[in-house]
Amino acid sequence: MKHRLSILLLLVSYVTLACGQIVFPSPNQVEMKKGKLTLRKNISMYTADTTAFYISLLRSEVLRDTSVKWQSKASAAHICWMNDPSLPPEGYKISINPKQMTITASGERGFIYAVQTLRQWVSGPAGKLTFACADITDSPRMQWRCFLLDSGRQYQRISTIKKYIDMASLLKMNYFHWHLTEGLGWRIEIKRYPHLAQVGGSVGKAEEQHGFYTQEEIREVINYASQRNITIVPEIDMPGHAEAALSAHPELGCFGLPVEVPQQGFTQNIFCAGKDEVLTFLKNVLDEVCELFPSPYIHLGGDEAPKGNWNKCEDCQKRIAALNLKDGHDLQLWFSAQMANHLKQKGRKAIFWGDVVYQDGYPLPDNTVIQWWNYRGHKDLALRNA
């Protein structure tokens, strides 16, 4: 019985290899055909733009740097790139027969995703690349396909971040939520306030928690991601998870005192919402963030902001009384609205974690997006309230 089962598994494996390819995520439609396209040295290619990034990506990741000869006629090329404005912006078609491969898209984003599919479709060593014949039609089912990297708690090298971006693009993700500030580290250089990164980037105890990204490095990562059809959404957490920032600028807290940086979790030390100079400081930070990041969305955190200090702070209590707010949570909603309105003036949308809508209170502006996260703690409360 075991012998028969082994034979059956081998036959199934052979059929899978012979009749289909595994691509993740699965394309919308794949029609397998007989035969295969084999490309050797001096591959010929037809394209309207030999300098496009997707061409270089195909040559490095699919053709494995095999030499290419450019053709002026599509019919004479092994690989042919064609534009079709009727296709969705991120959609593409790949048609492979034993003589030619034709890649069709309406623009650069679709061509990038076609290359990512071909990276998983190709087999064989350089000099003898093989593609199973098929017609592939694909476009994303979800507009927002995102991954998050927490660089606040753990500093990563630029080379490591680029590897994550490569993997995300291979999986056809198009947003990168970059968590850049945290109690354990402020990772983004702010030219106007250099101590934020110089001091706040090294408050963690472990060596791998030390470091920050210069604006030049951030631009490099933004460009790298953009080439691969990924928009970076930066997160600058406020008012909570601010211990690293308060280590550099204690005056931004309620009492202006040195703070303890937690190695886990968070403390009562958050940005003071009662001082006008704190709001001005954070708006200046957001000005530089917006200059760096072209993303239409800027994430402002808003989670896990305990109100113990605000409840004792004269400035915060004066603000609550002057605005006729109910409590510290209402004050956070007011604070969040000030920041969101500042982004609105720049044509940006503000994202907050669901914590800001656990209770009703001061109204948030219409450029606000709520990100639901804490089902364990609050079930679907944030989702329903949002």
Rank of each mutant, 00 (worst) to 15 (best):
K163C: 08
F111I: 02
P88H: 03
G183P: 04
V30F: 02
T66Y: 00
A48R: 14
R109Y: 03
A242M: 10
A273N: 06
K163E: 08
W310T: 12
W353P: 02
K191R: 10
H177Y: 10
I103K: 06
K312P: 00
P98Q: 08
F266P: 01
I22N: 06
V62A: 04
H378N: 14
Q345I: 08
Q338F: 02
G253K: 09
G211M: 12
S247D: 02
L333D: 00
T50V: 14
D65H: 15
S139C: 01
H3L: 15
Q338Y: 03
K93G: 03
P194H: 10
L343F: 11
T50Y: 14
C290E: 05
P194W: 13
Y175A: 15
L257Y: 00
F147H: 13
L381Y: 05
F335N: 12
N309V: 04
D49N: 13
T368A: 09
P88E: 01
P140D: 01
G107S: 08
L180Q: 10
Q359V: 05
C272H: 05
S75Y: 02
I190H: 04
W310C: 11
A340H: 02
Y113R: 10
Y54V: 11
A126F: 00
N97T: 07
F24Q: 15
L282I: 05
H342T: 08
R141G: 07
I236Q: 09
I236D: 09
S6K: 15
Q21N: 13
N385I: 01
S72D: 13
A340V: 05
I165F: 11
N174G: 03
K172M: 09
W334R: 13
I232T: 04
C80N: 12
S159A: 15
N374V: 02
E288R: 12
D330M: 12
R153M: 10
P365T: 08
W144Q: 14
T267F: 06
Q71N: 11
F293S: 11
H329F: 13
N28I: 03
D237A: 06
Q264A: 14
F53K: 07
N367A: 14
K33C: 00
A126T: 04
R153S: 14
T160M: 15
G377A: 11
C254K: 09
G377W: 03
G127A: 09
K318W: 02
Y113M: 09
K99R: 12
F352K: 10
L87V: 00
F131W: 03
E31M: 07
P306K: 14
A386N: 03
R157F: 09
S86N: 03
H342R: 14
V221N: 12
W310V: 08
R228L: 10
P27I: 05
E182T: 08
S75K: 15
M167L: 13
H329A: 13
A322G: 03
A242K: 11
M82Q: 14
K318I: 06
P140G: 01
S226G: 11
W70K: 13
Q100S: 01
G308T: 05
R319F: 06
A48H: 12
K379Q: 14
H3A: 15
W81T: 07
P296W: 10
P25R: 07
S72H: 13
P365Q: 13
E90V: 01
N284R: 15
L118N: 01
F147A: 11
